[in-house]
Amino acid sequence: MDSIPMNVSGHFNYWVAIFLMMTGFYVVISRGNLIKKLIGLNLFSTSVFILYISLGKIHGATAPIASETFHLYSNPLPHVLILTAIVVGVATTAVGLALTARIYEQYGTIEEDEIRIKDESL
């Protein structure tokens, strides 16, 4: 561990989380398909979760459940925030999917540019 420069080993996790986040972001802004956009959004949120949990980790610590053999626990606060965020995330994704399904019924497509063309022709 010590042989690697401190900066790289110390921030590696954050950088990968940011890379994943940006991949999700890229999917959201570059793709026209609404369901693909939602998948990208999911990717983005999961990467944010990874970043949060990385911040709460302590080296050599254990899961935050009290026990007699361990005395160093990882920070439980990010866990609580993320736990609820995951369930809320899927609930909001479901709303987005429901909207997509309705859009498909009305327009016959879920591609953004085709929807715009149909909208303008009205």
């Binding site: 999911n42 999961t46 979760f49 949990i53 990385s54 709460g56 980790k57 610590a61 254990t62 899961a63 935050p64 459940i65 626990y73 990882s74 990010p78 866990h79 993320i82 736990l83 995951i86 369930v87 995330g89 899927v90």
Partner: peptide
């Protein structure tokens, strides 16, 4: 692996 067992459980069930 980052000690967040509750979160992992939720992610596995939900995601």
């Amino acid at each position: 692996s980052m000690d967040a067992v509750d979160v992992a459980f939720t992610e596995a069930a939900v995601g």
